[in-house]
Structures are given as C-alpha cells and as structure tokens.
C-alpha cells in the first residue's frame, strides 16, 4: 500500500478525478455522453504521440521534430494518393506514412548516436528542415478534398452518441483502436523485453548501459525510428479525424506533448516513468484545455495553465531529489 502511494501516477489520477468532479459540479456538463466521447476523441492523436515520445524521453533523449514528421507524412501520403488516384485500402496509406516517418526518425537517431550532442538541438535542426521541406518542396498549406480511401476512413465511426439535453452529438472514430494498440505495444516493449530494459538503462546512465552490454547507438536509433513511425501514423490519423489536411494542425504540439509526458511522471533526464503515467498526463492536459470554458476560464489563459501544470508536475520530485543530494553531500563534507 505504501508503494502504491509512492507512484506519481496515483497523484495524477487523483488530480484528474478531482478536476472532473469540479467541472461536473460547476457546469453539470462533464459526465454527459457526448463530452466523454469528445474527450476520448481528442485523446487519440496526442495519446499516440505521447506514448512514443515517452520512450524517447525514458532513454534520456528528447525529440521535438515529431510534429513536423507527422506533418510531412500527412501531406506526402495525401499528395501521393491524389496523384495516383489511389482507391485501394487505407492500410497502404498507414504503411506508407509509417515508412516515411521511420526514415525521418532514423535520420534523427543516426545523428543523435553519431554526434552525441544534446538531442534537443539536433532535432530542432531536423525539424526546421522537415518543416521547410513540407512547405517548400511539397508546397503544402491546405488540402480540403481528401482521396477516397481517407475520406471513407474519416466517415467510419464506431458509434455515435447524442446528448438529449444539449442536443450535441459526437461520434467515436475507429482510430481509437490504433491508440489502444500503440499504448499496449509501448507498454509491452518497455516492461517485458530486453530492449525496454535497455531503454531505461540508457536513460539512467549511458556509460553503465554500455558496460552492461547494451548496444547504446542501436537503442538510440530504435527509439527515434519508433517515434518517427508513430508520428507518421499519427499524422494520417489526424487527417482522417478532421477530414482535411492543414499545415497548422500540429502547431506547438512538441511542447504540449513533452509537457504531458513530464506531467505523467517521466523524468526529462531519462530512466523512469511509465506508459500509464504518460497516458494519464495526456488525459490531464486535454481535460484542462478542453474544459476551461466549462470551468468559466477564458481560453486565452489555457497557455498559462499548461505552464503552471508543467512546473507543478516536476516541482516536488525535483525538490525532493535536490534535498536528498544535499544530504549526501553534507554527510561527505561534514
């Protein structure tokens, strides 16, 4: 029981429950069927990205290029389908997006493993290049008429709900299975495979991981490639969710997703955290950004709330650590 309360996930969960109760009491519209479906729907894209990014962060790296990878994949696949007049299965689209994303991710990974510079700066460089490529070479801004396979996918819903009192309807897209699938995959890799152990070890201490016998460069490349792959899939999912392509879909996503992962209890220096925590972090972020209006706070202040959340999320764990370090130091010196 004591161990149970030591986990940071439980606090995130408690905050989520408290917050949803507050929203429910203040507006009475939180636990309505359409609001819940809307929440689930808005979780799909950030949830997928965050679970992959959690892997990168757990390995002690950071990636800010994934929204741009997603953007590039989304536009290139849609454009290719348009020029080919492709009418086959949407699966090919996902495969293609995953492939392009993986190549872009491997570029990040190879650079990170080779240069050994802070990955924030490496991926900042590649993300600018990807953005420039999408805007300049692909000449993309908006695609409003989707090719047939994607348009079909956009229409394909599991079920629809309609709230009787407010008359608002929402439908649950099939892509929710993708989210569940990816979260499960990441959880499996991190928990039950040697690779997952290697990722945690690399995040904890790269030198030690190497001494133990993990192939550090390969692990690095794997995390970035996986991130790129998921980003590609996510890009296409976003298209099918919104029924169009737009260049600003993922504006500022990198920071929001990083914040969600950090909120979920993963240390930015690597070596800790869990997929469950990450997922809860995403839920909390979305809960706030979706429901600020229900709480009576103007949306202009949502950015401030995110910032406060990030700082609050890391405040106590960091402070505890620094106190522990001071105690050790004073024992040595005194």
């Amino acid at each position: 029981m004591k161990k149970f309360f030591k986990k940071s996930e439980i606090y995130v969960l408690l905050i989520i429950i408290a917050l949803s109760l507050i929203i429910q009491i203040k507006s009475g519209q939180f636990f309505t069927s359409n609001n819940m479906v809307d929440l689930a729907r808005s979780l799909i894209v950030p949830g997928m990205m965050a679970s992959a990014l959690f892997m990168v962060i757990a390995s002690g790296n950071i990636d800010v290029s994934f929204p741009y990878t997603a953007m590039l994949c989304m536009f290139s696949v849609t454009k290719l389908f348009q020029t080919w007049n492709f009418e086959g299965s949407i699966l090919w689209g996902y495969l293609l997006a995953a492939l392009i994303g993986m190549v872009l991710g491997i570029i990040n990974g190879v650079l990170a493993a080779w240069l050994k510079l802070p990955t924030l700066i490496i991926t900042l460089g590649t993300c600018t290049a990807y953005l420039g490529f999408t805007q300049g070479v692909l000449k993309s801004s908006v695609i409003s008429v989707l090719p047939k396979p994607m348009a079909d996918m956009a229409e394909w819903n599991l079920f629809s709900v309609r709230d009787v009192s407010s008359g608002l309807g929402s439908s649950m897209p099939v892509s929710i299975f993708l989210l569940i699938f990816i979260v499960l995959i990441v959880a499996l890799i991190m928990k039950y495979t040697m690779l997952g152990r290697g990722i945690y070890a690399l995040g904890g201490d790269p030198v030690a991981a190497e001494r133990v016998g993990f192939h550090v460069p390969l692990i690095r490349i794997f995390v970035f490639a996986f991130m790129g792959m998921i980003a590609g899939i996510t890009g296409l999912t976003q298209v099918t969710l919104s029924g169009m392509c737009q260049i600003n879909f993922f504006d500022g996503y990198e920071m929001t997703i990083i914040a969600a992962v950090v909120l979920g209890g993963a240390k930015i220096t690597g070596g800790s955290g869990s997929v469950l925590g990450t997922f809860l972090g995403v839920v909390l972020m979305k809960l706030i950004s979706n429901n600020l209006i229900l709480l009576g706070i103007p949306t202009n202040w949502s950015k401030l709330m995110t910032g406060v959340l990030i700082i609050a999320g890391v405040f106590f764990s960091s402070y505890k650590e620094i106190l522990a370090k001071q105690r050790v130091n004073s024992n040595i010196l005194g």
Partner: peptide
C-alpha cells in the same frame, strides 16, 4: 528546485 533547465524554461 533542481528542475532540468529544459523543462524549467519550457514551463
């Protein structure tokens, strides 16, 4: 507080 510079300045 000991928050890594990246997260602290991000927040």
């Amino acid at each position: 507080i000991g928050i890594p510079a990246m997260v602290a300045t991000l927040g």
